[in-house]
């Protein structure tokens, strides 16, 4: 075995997950013990593999996926299949009746043990949840998912990850550079945030959610201005989506961003 052959074998083994009865691996490991250059190469390879595996394990499944799997009615029918041999006709009826009884019992069980559905968030919950995330981002306690100065790229990325992507931007925002975007979940509903540079050291944040995801969405085309501490916000709905533009500043600054002349 030479160094390249040893590399080829070591490369396909994860650190700590060795097949101990693999004689080729044992030889490659022995080779690495005697060859410092190979040992160094494998240490780097292991570090990269560990880093990738660790990051991959951080990709979260949807919050309700487990419940959706367990709520499947087929779970209640987890029984061996019926024997295939010929049976008298009346056995078929009794088997059918038994199956119906089992199904009814299973359905009743599943119905009564389903977790209560999470109600859609209210407008106020959506606003305060988004402001909380924005505060964390600005404080450096949370990070943007993607960073780019190009809003069209961010909107494209949001579409790719099935997050709400604003169908249209307010006129004043279309020519602004962006810092990046983030997706979050509020009350089980996906929400996206795009951060715009409105001036030197100043940002405005457009929060988007599907209109049907809110129990009381804001009115169509009529921004509602609400102050949340140091944040000022304007919320409205348009073409099936609800938006909130938020910034740290004055009402006049925010209204200036949304005025048709801006």
């Amino acid at each position: 075995m030479n160094r390249d052959e040893a590399k080829a074998i070591l490369r396909v083994h994860r650190p700590g997950h060795h097949e101990h009865n693999d004689p080729e691996l044992a030889r490659a490991l022995e080779f690495a013990r005697q060859d410092p250059e190979l040992a160094q190469w494998w240490a780097k390879e292991n570090a990269f593999d560990t880093s990738v595996a660790e990051k991959l394990s951080h990709v979260p499944p949807p919050a309700d996926l487990r419940e959706r799997i367990l709520a499947n009615p087929a779970v209640g029918s987890e029984k061996p299949s019926a024997a295939t041999r010929q049976q008298p006709w009346w056995r078929g009826f009794s088997a059918l009746a038994a199956a119906l009884a089992i199904f009814a019992t299973g359905a009743f069980f599943v119905w009564n043990h389903q977790p209560p559905a999470i109600p859609p968030p209210t407008l106020a919950e959506w606003q305060s949840g988004s402001i909380e995330t924005l505060t964390h981002i600005l404080a450096g306690a949370d990070k943007l998912d993607v960073e780019s100065p190009d809003s069209s790229k961010l909107r494209q990325w949001l579409q790719q990850v099935d997050a709400p992507s604003p169908a249209a931007l307010p006129n004043s925002l279309t020519h602004l550079d962006t810092a990046g975007c983030k997706t979050i979940a509020i009350g089980n509903q996906r929400v996206s945030i795009i951060c715009f540079h409105t001036g030197p050291r100043q940002l405005a944040h457009l929060v988007t959610v599907e209109e049907r995801s809110l129990s009381n969405p804001p009115p169509e085309h009529q921004p509602q201005y609400v102050r949340h501490g140091e944040w000022v916000t304007a919320s409205w709905s348009d073409r099936g989506q609800s938006f909130m533009l938020a910034m740290k500043g004055t009402d006049a600054e925010l209204k200036g961003l949304l005025s048709p002349a801006a």
Binding site: L138, A139, G140, E147, P149, H197, R201, E230, G249
Partner: peptide, 14 residues
Amino acid sequence: LVPLPSLAAAGKKH
């Protein structure tokens, strides 16, 4: 990429 420190700076403005 826009470095994150600029974000933090913008947040501190107010």
